[in-house]
């Protein structure tokens, strides 16, 4: 228990306004990230994982967003900070890496300027010092010719190089905490491997805490220490990576594993999760949110108010239905949803 938590999220809910009503995309989520630890958040689009990431950074448009709960960073609740106080945290104490390196960089600014912007915001450095530091950063993220890239525009770089620049921006002020939102989804596999290696190297050097948002279970297996599986705005399973991969329990986690081709060697058919991920407006708000996608499981096995249970040490599963879950028999398999 010597580790002090770097980031502690307590009962965070984030709701967005649609029409006149607010709908929670992140619903009562609690999560802890320690120093030098990678916590992956996994789920399909619409499960709330990106909404959670942007909530920590408070990058949602304020006029349409309501947040409740606590985001404690170094013991300070970020949700109670003013905009200008929050600006002092963003970029300095926490950085963010975005999914698409093409759109994440300003097309009209040189790479150097974009890296230095963050230093300008937070550090009192002379122009020469900033340039020196930018070149060091570019070198650190594995860009072969820093001097040249410093003066280039984003469109002059390849996708992999751009993502390296995005990472350089995120670590420009040596933050203690990083959020990586699908950092390799837009990249080719060989580039993905390079970027993942780079992130791991940097992480071990800088002892950063990282929240890694992804839908790719392979990336999680390569990167994460702990994994939170999200569905419909809630964490449905949480464990360290080895436990989760060797003993997935929640029906959603098990379904995910069974539907990816790389985990289904030799198996002719992939598992199909019935129905669709509900839209924000149609999220089930009561009972087990995954129950409607496993209709063959007896409804009596779900809890009325599903809670996270610690089923073994540091392995949490929501709802008791996992104890009775089995995959559908052939006859029920693959019912196309007719609408």
């Amino acid at each position: 228990m010597s580790k002090q938590p770097l980031l502690k999220i307590n009962n965070l809910s984030t709701s967005f306004r649609i029409g006149d009503d607010y709908y929670a995309a992140v619903d009562d989520v609690s999560l802890t990230v320690n120093e030098n630890e990678v916590v992956a958040i996994v789920g399909e689009s619409g499960c709330g994982k990106s909404a959670l990431a942007l909530s920590i950074m408070q990058l949602h448009p304020q006029e349409r967003t309501k947040m409740a709960g606590e985001v404690l960073f170094n013991g300070k609740n970020l949700l109670s900070l003013s905009v200008s106080e929050m600006n002092k945290v963003r970029g300095k104490d926490m950085g963010m890496i975005f999914q698409d390196p093409l759109t994440a960089l300003n097309p009209l600014m040189r790479v150097g300027q974009q890296i230095e912007e963050s230093m300008k915001n937070h550090l009192q450095l002379s122009d020469a010092e900033m340039k020196k530091r930018s070149l060091e950063l570019l070198n650190k993220v594995g860009i072969p010719n820093p001097e040249r890239t410093y003066m280039q525009y984003p469109h002059e770089l390849s996708g992999g190089m751009r993502q390296r620049v995005v990472i350089a921006i995120a670590i420009a002020c040596e933050p203690k905490f990083l959020i990586a939102d699908e950092p390799t989804t837009a990249l080719d596999v060989t580039i993905q491997a390079q970027i993942l290696d780079l992130m791991r190297d940097l992480q071990s050097q800088m002892k950063t805490g990282i929240i890694l948002i992804t839908h790719d279970l392979g990336v999680v297996a390569e990167m994460a220490d702990k994994v939170a599986v999200m569905y419909a705005g809630e964490i449905v399973e949480f464990a360290d990576v080895s436990t989760l991969y060797n003993n997935p329990l929640h029906p959603y986690t098990r379904s995910l594993f069974n539907s990816i081709p790389s985990a289904a060697h030799g198996q002719d058919r992939l598992h199909v999760i019935q129905g669709i991920v509900p839209s924000l407006k149609n999220l089930p708000r009561t009972g087990c949110r995954f129950s409607e996608r496993i209709p063959w499981i007896d409804s009596a096995t779900h809890e009325e108010h599903p809670a996270l249970h610690e089923v073994e040490k540091d392995h949490f599963v929501r709802c008791s239905c996992y104890q009775h879950f089995h995959f559908p028999k052939d006859a029920e398999d693959l019912k196309y949803d007719i609408s």
Partner: peptide, 13 residues
């Protein structure tokens, strides 16, 4: 190309 595919087993990392 093949070696770049992430291994799905975290114990082989």
């Amino acid at each position: 190309l093949l070696s770049a595919i992430p291994d799905i087993n975290p114990d082989n990392r």
